[in-house]
Computed example of a mutant assay.
Amino acid sequence: MQDVAANKIDLIVTDPPFAIDFKATKQNYNRTASRVMQGYNEIKQKDYYEFTARWMEQAFRILKESGSMYVFSGWNNLKDILNALDDTGFTTINHIIWKYQFGVVTSKKFVTSHYHCIYVCKNEKKRRFYPYTRFGKNEKTAEGRSLHYKDKEDVWNIKREYWTGDQKTPTKLPAEIIKKILEYSSKEGDVVCDPFLGSGQVAVVSKMMGRRYLGFEIVKRYHQFAKKRLDENIYRVKA
C-alpha cells in the first residue's frame, strides 16, 4: 500500500488475519485438509496491535475523503482493531454483526457463530452512502413492513459459502456480504481495495459488479489462485 498514491481509493473491504493461530482443517471446518491450500500467514497476538495500526495508517492515507472501510474481525483481538481505528483517525459509523449458520462447538463455553464488521470512514462530512440502492424507500414486504429498514439493520444473517472444486483457500467472505457492502458504499467505476486478498473474493465480486479493484496478497499460491479466478471469470454474482 505504500506504493499507492494518497486519496485514490473509494472503498476498502478486508478480512485481515485474526491472530488466533487459525488452521482450516477438516476437524473444525468439515473440509478435506489435502484440498486446503497451505501458507496462511498468521500474526502473533503480542504483535497484533502494531501490525494492525501499520496497515490501517496506509489504508487511511490511500482512502479518499469520501471513502469508507469495512474491516472484519473475530472477537478475540477485536480491542486491537477498535483501538487502532481510533488511533489512526477513522470515524466509526456502525458496528455490524455477521451471524452465520454454524460455529465451532466446545464443551466449556458458548458456540461462537458470528464475526464483527466495523464500518468506518475517513471524513464523516464527505462520506458517501447509497441508502436505497437495494430497496426503494417505500418498498414493503407482503406483510407491509419496510424492506430497506430490514436490510439496513446492523445484524446480518448471511450463510457461509461452501467451496466447490478441489482447491480452496482457508477463508473466504460470502459474495452476498461483499455485494451488499459494495451496493451501499460504492458505485460502478469506483476503486475497491482489499489489503489482504486471500482467495480474491473482494476483487472477483467487485469485477462482476463493474467496480475497479486493487488487492495485495503475500502468499504466492493464494495470489495465483485469485488471479486465476479473475482471469477466468468463474464466479457470477446473483442479481
Rank of each mutant, 00 (worst) to 15 (best):
G67C: 06
P17L: 08
K99M: 12
V111S: 10
Y119A: 13
Y48D: 10
H114K: 05
M37N: 00
G67Y: 04
P17Y: 12
T106C: 07
F90Y: 07
F102Y: 14
T14F: 10
A24M: 01
S34C: 04
I97A: 06
S113D: 13
M69R: 04
E65S: 12
S66Q: 06
F22K: 03
N28E: 04
D80E: 15
Q27R: 14
V120T: 09
N83G: 08
P16D: 01
A24Y: 01
I93T: 09
D86I: 15
Q45C: 05
Y49N: 11
A53V: 10
V71W: 05
D21V: 11
T91A: 09
G67R: 10
F110T: 04
N30Y: 05
V111G: 09
Q45I: 09
W98R: 01
H114Q: 06
F18R: 03
K46G: 02
V36G: 02
N83M: 14
R35W: 00
Q38I: 08
Y70M: 15
S66E: 12
Y119P: 02
N28H: 07
D21G: 14
G103S: 08
V36M: 06
K64E: 05
I81Y: 12
D15E: 05
K79V: 09
S34G: 02
L85W: 01
S68Q: 08
I93R: 08
M37Q: 06
A59N: 09
I96T: 07
D15F: 01
T25P: 00
L85Y: 01
F72C: 11
N76I: 08
P17A: 11
T112W: 01
M37E: 04
W55D: 03
A59Y: 06
P17E: 09
K44Y: 01
I62Q: 03
K64F: 00
Y70C: 13
T91K: 11
A33E: 14
I20Y: 00
Q38F: 00
N30L: 03
S113W: 03
W75A: 13
D10M: 10
L85A: 15
S73H: 10
R54M: 10
Y119K: 08
G89M: 10
C121S: 11
A33P: 00
N28V: 14
T14V: 05
T88Q: 15
K64H: 04
K8L: 12
F72I: 08
N83R: 12
I96S: 06
D47T: 11
F22A: 09
I62W: 02
A59P: 02
I43N: 04
N76C: 07
A33F: 01
G39R: 05
S107R: 14
Q38H: 07
D80C: 14
I97C: 10
V104P: 01
N41S: 13
K44D: 15
G89C: 06
Q45E: 15
V36I: 14
V120Y: 00
Y119S: 06
Y29Q: 02
W55N: 06
N77Q: 15
Y40F: 14
R31A: 13
L82H: 05
K64Y: 01
K26G: 15
Y115G: 05
T32V: 09
I93Y: 00
L63I: 12
N30W: 03
I81A: 06
L82D: 09
M56H: 02
W75E: 14
D21F: 03
V71H: 02
R31W: 05
A84G: 07
D15C: 04
A19S: 11
M56F: 15
N83T: 13
F22I: 12
N41D: 13
N94F: 06
P16F: 07
K109W: 03
